[in-house]
């Protein structure tokens, strides 16, 4: 077991570089990085910036797999630089490229705008049949644990774009919505508080919709949060087919509770605090 803090191996980082003001096409520069046990790819990039080449650009923020900024193509597979251990994926060489299927702004910085635009199209928020309900709610919505579980997994998405980079359909199809927005659509379709499934179907059922998913499964394999977009998309297909055959569940919003009910409060439990919003 190597001592922490001591380099155990020299690893060559082959990093894609691109400066929009100077370069016509991206090129690769190699850097030798002394790697310790426990070093992430993000640490390696910091080493390069601090010691070898201060002009290297990439995007990161939280360095702990929460913000979804540092998605990159590491040895041919999209992953977050911050939660990928160098020694887990590299022996002597590590290629670091920006996420494919997105335009490159500079070096390792992809332009994720197209993904955010597609995300917006599926209306990724709870829709009510009665629009006033969204602003002036009349009570709480009851949701069982089972109902929560039917979408909870898909709500862990951090919008890092790894699935979009791994999707083979998106390699050629600019209009296909892709795994992230479609999984977001399923996350809200499956939510019992939501009544927007039929409105969303118009987007997910379109030519750019879920019928261009062929279950290559890469999105689920690369997802750093275990969201499993492929599962969401297959469930979305099932619900679309059922809707097409008129066999789908009619929207049944969960029970709305008008207050805590008429039960008697136990003496050792405090009263409900006053509404603040």
């Amino acid at each position: 077991m190597a001592e922490a803090g001591k380099a155990v191996r020299q690893i060559a980082f082959h990093v894609t570089r691109y400066n929009p003001e100077r370069d016509r096409v991206p090129f690769v520069t190699s850097y030798q990085v002394p790697v310790r046990q426990g070093m992430t790819v993000l640490d390696g990039l910091h080493y390069i910036k601090d010691n070898l080449d201060a002009t290297l650009a990439w995007r990161y923020s939280c360095r702990m797999g929460i913000c979804g900024s540092c998605g990159m193509l590491l040895n041919g597979r999209p992953a977050l630089a911050c939660n990928t251990q160098i020694l887990h994926i590299a022996n002597a060489n590590l290629t670091v490229k920006p996420l494919p299927n997105f335009p490159i702004i500079r070096d390792l910085v992809p332009d994720l705008q197209s993904m955010f635009d597609k995300h917006r199209i599926v209306e990724p928020y709870i829709l009510h049949a009665n629009e006033a309900e969204s602003d002036f709610w009349a009570g709480e919505f009851y949701q069982s644990t089972e109902q929560l579980k039917s979408y909870l997994q898909f709500s862990y998405c951090i919008l890092c774009g790894c699935c979009m980079a791994a999707c083979p359909t998106l390699a050629t199809d600019t209009r296909y919505l892709g795994p992230m927005p479609l999984a977001a659509a399923q996350r809200y379709d499956a939510d019992t508080r939501d009544e927007g499934r039929h409105a969303r179907n118009a987007v997910t059922d379109a030519q750019s919709g879920v019928s261009h998913c062929h279950y290559a499964g890469e999105c689920s394999r690369v997802c750093p949060k275990g969201v499993d977009p492929a599962k969401a998309l297959q469930l979305l297909k099932r619900s679309l087919v059922l809707d097409y055959l008129h066999l789908g569940r009619q929207t049944s919003p969960c029970k709305k509770l008008q207050g805590p009910g008429n039960g008697t409060r136990l003496p050792d439990i405090a009263a409900v605090p006053k509404k603040t919003a």
Partner: peptide
Amino acid sequence: RYDNRLGIAGWLSGGRWG
């Protein structure tokens, strides 16, 4: 921007795919 879409090679190219 540099268009980094993989193209048809992206359907076929083997990386660390499953």
